[in-house]
Design a protein around this nucleic acid. Structure first.
Lengths: 145, 145
DNA sequence: CCTTATATTTGCAATGATTTCAATTTTGTA
DNA sequence: TACAAAATTGAAATCATTGCAAATATAAGG
């Protein structure tokens, strides 16, 4: 799995955004930093609550807009486990998500490339353009049992 | 992949519901039949629109309640590709979903057990209770290209 | 440094899916 | 038929998300 944190050590968030075609505003940098620092797969509301002290003028709409932009430029991915409450992830490499139905936490799990062969798995989708693959599980996590 | 349609040939929907602990009311039978006949992964609204001519008193709330009941008794599964608009599937065996971002259609695709080994895949989730696994892709389908 | 054009942010109102809830209807049983 | 329990219903409430137009910030040219 590619470590985004490793990338952070060699370049700052501002550069990371620029290199992916996103103009780095104050709000965008703060949001990207939040995604990469806390890997809690936050919802729009969580990010808004966490950052509007630091940035008092921050608007929920800006968080929505920015996440849409991030996903478009592939510096974040949309994790849609729940019907509502979209969550976001700054780790854009292939990995699975486990959603605990008790504590509502979202865990990452690694996917062995040998076990999960993209190309062969989707061979039944001939002539389809795949833009995103997601694997997720629901259940009860270790801590909640 | 286990064929639910094969099951339908040897037992009717009413019996299928009873055997899974769901009391077969008029509404529940109609909804289960709809799920098994049209495999379009319908939304609550689609089912409501399709059935409220046949059952004029049908309420959206009943469709919501019934889907919740079906999922609980594992005769339907919740397919949450979109952030909103939950969709449902009467095929409860393991298979993948592909969502076309143009026509909004939802396609099934089979998953080769040899390629996708549940137990090994989730070995990183030690002591987690897995209740549901979903694999889905987004992109553009054959017809929309 | 000022002016103008462009991009971004903001807050409020609107939308729309889902849930809540109490009343009504249906079903099962004596 | 009468009664109790379960299922259904519709209207109101909730809440995440989107649309939009005004306000603000940024960039470029003179």
């Amino acid at each position: 799995m590619i470590s985004i944190l490793y990338l952070l050590q060699i370049m700052n968030v501002q550069q990371y955004l620029i290199e992916n075609g996103v103009k780095p505003s104050l709000q965008r940098i703060a949001l990207m930093e939040y995604l990469l620092t806390y890997k809690t797969h936050p919802s729009v509301d969580e990010m808004y609550e966490a950052l509007h002290e630091e940035i008092p003028t921050l608007s929920r709409t800006t968080v929505y807009n920015t996440m849409k932009l991030f996903v478009k430029h592939k510096v974040a991915s949309l994790v849609s486990i729940e019907e509502k409450n979209a969550r976001f992830d700054g780790n854009v490499s292939l990995h699975g998500h486990f959603a605990c139905q008790k504590c509502n936490r979202l865990y990452d799990f690694s996917i062995n490339d040998q076990l999960f062969n993209k190309k062969e798995l989707i061979s039944t989708l001939d002539n389809f353009t795949i833009e995103d693959i997601q694997i997720y599980c629901k259940g009860i996590c270790k801590n909640c049992k």
